[in-house]
């Protein structure tokens, strides 16, 4: 297939993914890929998420429709797999939490009736991995997130020096690269507090430091419990719900609409705190 380029699986921490609700298509064509822009300006059509599968439920009636919650050091995110992702669904069904999993999938944005946009991942594949692999992912995701924070800072500073004051003006800069455009979009939509994401990365780094220095101390199985305390504390507040229609980031979005059980209640997501409640600043909205 000429001209077809596989989308990179972006590395985004659960906490940042959960802050994301800006999605767009590049053009009007039916199969144009849908992208999610995260607060630090990552443009993703596909993500690789790793962490601990902490819970799983079959939400379907006749047809199995699995939802799992995957927690990384910064927070947690729901992943879904139904009949159109049979292998992923099968793995979710067969895996007893807690267990380390790697999930490749497409971010989906779901809008509740009151206009709240919630994010989840439609799994293309779910596989059990070991703690070493998960640690590798945390390190890599931390590095990629720092890359984005740096690029964001540079972009804003460059704009500032030229007398640009707002994202919309930055977008008009003729020299804006695709990355620049993505950052501009993120800036306009989220006005992100970059410090919040730097702290998020610091949380991940602390987690690795604790884990690596003590890695030889205990058997591998113990590391499954090493989930972020802040994220863990909030799990209790979650009300399970069924999903309705999801705006899917995949090409087969029409299939997806068939998967949600009829008349589902919206998901009530907990607020996200990854570094203690006092540090979590409310997201700015325009």
């Amino acid at each position: 297939m000429a001209g077809f380029a596989r989308e990179v699986a972006r590395r985004i921490f659960a906490s940042e993914l959960r802050d994301s609700d800006l999605s767009f298509r590049e053009n009007e064509e039916q199969y144009a890929p849908l992208y999610l822009i995260t607060p630090t300006g990552a443009r993703c059509n596909r993500v690789l998420v790793m962490g601990t599968l902490t819970e799983k439920d079959n939400l379907g009636d006749d047809v199995e429709y699995w939802r799992g919650r995957v927690a990384d050091p910064t927070g947690s995110i729901f992943v879904y797999a139904g009949q159109y992702q049979p292998e992923a669904a099968q793995t979710l069904a067969a895996t007893e939490p807690p267990a380390f999993v790697a999930v490749v999938g497409k971010p989906s944005v779901y809008e509740t009736e009151d206009g709240k946009r919630l994010i989840s991942v439609r799994a293309e594949s779910v596989r059990r991995v070991d703690s070493d692999t998960r640690d590798r992912w945390v390190l890599e995701t931390a590095a990629r997130t720092l890359d984005r924070i740096e690029a964001f800072r540079e972009f804003v500073e460059a704009g500032g020096a030229d007398g640009f004051s707002s994202g919309s003006e930055l977008l008009k800069k003729p020299s804006a690269s695709r990355e620049g455009v993505d950052i501009g979009k993120a800036l306009l939509h989220y006005s992100p507090d970059l410090e919040r994401y730097r702290v998020m990365v610091a949380t991940a780094a602390d987690f690795l430091e604790g884990g690596i220095s003590g890695a030889d101390a205990g058997p591998k199985a113990e590391t499954a419990e090493r989930v972020a305390p802040a994220a863990a504390a909030d799990w209790e507040e979650v009300n399970d719900g069924e999903i309705g229609r999801l705006e899917d980031l995949g090409e087969e979005r029409d299939f997806y609409e068939d998967e949600g059980p009829e008349g589902g209640e919206p998901i009530e997501e907990e607020e996200i705190f990854f570094a203690g409640r006092e540090k979590a600043s409310p997201r700015k909205r325009r």
Binding site: L139, A142, A143, L146, R198, V201, A202, A205, L208, E209, I212
Partner: peptide, 8 residues
């Protein structure tokens, strides 16, 4: 991990 912390 130390490199990451330094970069942080």
């Amino acid at each position: 991990v130390a490199d990451l912390a330094a970069r942080m």
